[in-house]
């Protein structure tokens, strides 16, 4: 199954669609988080609760990740690539398991990237959580 997981990762790296998809996720979540930060009062932006909310907002990527999982499978059928996949790995349960391994990994990466980039760049550092 390791070979199949490696092949799935290679698939993702060798088409433009996945990079567009990743960029779209970062853009959408980034815009959402930036919007929150931009519309919040200064004293609110500095609170731990607000920043935690931003990180949780980045969890929106999980929903997009679910779409990603669906896309992986439907793309296989749309382009007919499921046939060579099944010829290489005739046991279908292994194919499904490999997708099950890859999607959480990708989601984790995307979530970490978004959580790392968006709030830290947008939010103003506040000296304290105390309202002015």
């Amino acid at each position: 199954m390791i070979d199949l997981v490696r092949a799935e990762l290679l698939k993702a790296r060798t088409t433009r669609g996945w990079y567009v998809y990743l960029g779209l996720i970062v853009l959408l979540v980034g815009l959402g988080v930036s919007g929150d930060v931009g519309t919040a009062e200064d004293f609110v932006r500095g609170t731990v609760e607000f920043q935690r909310g931003l990180v949780e907002g980045a969890g929106f990527a999980l929903l997009l990740g679910l779409i990603l999982a669906i896309t992986i499978v439907t793309t296989e059928f749309r382009h007919g690539t499921i046939t060579p996949t099944l010829l290489t790995t005739p046991r279908r349960e292994i194919v499904v398991k490999s997708v099950g391994v890859i999607v959480p990994c990708r989601n984790s990466v995307v979530t970490i990237v978004i959580a790392r980039i968006s709030p830290s760049r947008s939010a103003n550092p506040a000296p304290s959580t105390k309202p002015r």
Binding site: D3, L4, R6, A7, L10, K11, T14, T15, R16, G17, T75, H79, G80, T81, T83, P84, T85, T88, T89
Partner: peptide
């Protein structure tokens, strides 16, 4: 036609070889 149109022929073969 059972190939992803956006992938190069070489990469298509590399994916299968890896799998």
């Amino acid at each position: 036609s059972e190939v992803h149109p956006g992938r190069t022929g070489l990469n298509h073969l590399r994916v299968l070889a890896t799998a």
